[in-house]
Design a protein around this nucleic acid. Structure first.
Lengths: 125, 125
DNA sequence: TTGTTAGTGATAACAATATATCAATAGCAA
DNA sequence: TTGCTATTGATATATTGTTATCACTAACAA
């Protein structure tokens, strides 16, 4: 970055304060609390720059647009609530030697995505 | 389906013979071996019907178009080769009680995707 | 065979992001 | 302050994968 703008600060604040990956629309909505004129174009541009600078990472789920969260979080995977569509970080990992692949296959990394109900959406009894 | 066409047979043969999930373009290319005039529109229409009839299932990977494989395969997950982009079935499963989620979260299902090199693409030494 | 009509092929249209454009605005160095 | 220009906001455009359209073809019952 070359200049420090209110828009950029607002976007980074929103992501670092969220504690879970946010969609571009969530970032736009939350960012408008700080800069009411904030445009979706600026959100996309700033996210691209923040990713390039290594501050944030895209979180990819099948069939869905990227969400974003702070980089350098602990090893973790993601949980998507099927009811409210929020995605949560699960700070845990699976041991790679528990994963069995065919002979001569090499594992670089893995993505584990859990689907279900978060505590706000699970039916009470 | 109402009629049994050469196109439909070719598409189902390609998928059932592949042993791994195929993209629409892979299905189109392989299907043309049997029906050289095969159109991508027919591929999409037939895939939609075969899914609706329960013969095949879409395989969803983050940021990628759906692939397709036969339904009623054993419990398994997927491995994507980062070099050749092929996706392979891994016939294994992880125990759900090995997965730790926050209190009051409920897991319905999970997707595990491994990334790395398949045996054809791993560097020989 | 033949007639009916489901299915096909070619391509236009669509949907859902994401990027490019450009005049206006606002960081920030001097 | 002022001036330069990076950044912004609004919106047009691009992109990618999928679906709709429609004239033509072929499956199959009679």
């Amino acid at each position: 970055m070359e200049r420090n703008t209110r828009q950029r600060d607002a976007i980074l604040d929103v992501i670092s304060g969220a504690g879970r990956p946010l969609s571009t629309q969530e970032i736009l909505a939350a960012g408008k609390a700080a800069v009411s004129s904030l445009s979706i174009a600026t959100v996309y541009r700033t996210l691209r720059d923040l990713v390039a600078e290594g501050h944030i990472l895209p979180v990819k789920l099948p069939g869905e647009a990227d969400r974003y969260e702070m980089a350098r979080l602990d090893d973790h995977y993601h949980f998507k609530c099927s009811t409210c569509s929020k995605v949560f970080d699960i700070h845990d990992n699976i041991k790679k030697n528990n994963l069995h692949v065919p002979r001569n296959f090499v594992i670089d990394k893995y993505d584990l995505i859990l689907y279900g109900q978060c505590s706000d959406c699970v039916p009470k009894h």
